[in-house]
Amino acid sequence: MLETLDDARTSEAELVQSARAGNASAQGMLFEKHRGDSYRVAYRLLGHEQDALDVVQEAMIKAFSGLAEFDGRCGFRTWLLRIVTNTALDWGRRRRRNPTMQIGTDVTSNEPVVYDDPSRSVNCQELRSILDQALARLSPTLKSTFVLFAELEMSYAEIAEVEQVPIGTVMSRIHAARSKLQSVLDWNRLR
């Protein structure tokens, strides 16, 4: 198992090395490997598909053109997720200042989500809107920490590495975010 992890790390290190030298196929492999997680984080932070794709594009460009600054002390994924998170939060701030910059269409599903009890079915888009409204009440730091925890199921240690804060701070943020989300969610629309 350890050997497999080491192999994975080595091959990623080699990819990063090639990508740093401008090798497009190495960049492409890194893109394919990490685009999914990057997108999920960006989507949860922004609640909009096109914005999330734009953020992934920006973050990948920043990562590939800034690879000289990547010292390898953390994994490439950690470093990339840090860039994705920061880019998404910046994007969100600029969007709030300039609401017209939101472009593209949201292709959120209209399929009904059915709870255990069929009488309590709620439209998926409505569920997303309820959750997005609650997420919008979190500060950027609480939101990004909670998204890494809940969406990517990262450990406290991994999140601490991405956000460059102590593990205790991560725990405190997750606690605060969950308490806050549970207190502001529109339960009447969910139950």
């Binding site: 997108y39 999920r40 989507y43 949860r44 599903s109 709870y115 309820i130 809940a150 969406e151 339960w187």
Partner: peptide, 13 residues
Amino acid sequence: LLDRVWTQTRPVS
């Protein structure tokens, strides 16, 4: 319920 809502709103790839 929050966990369930979170799971059911996972972004589509």
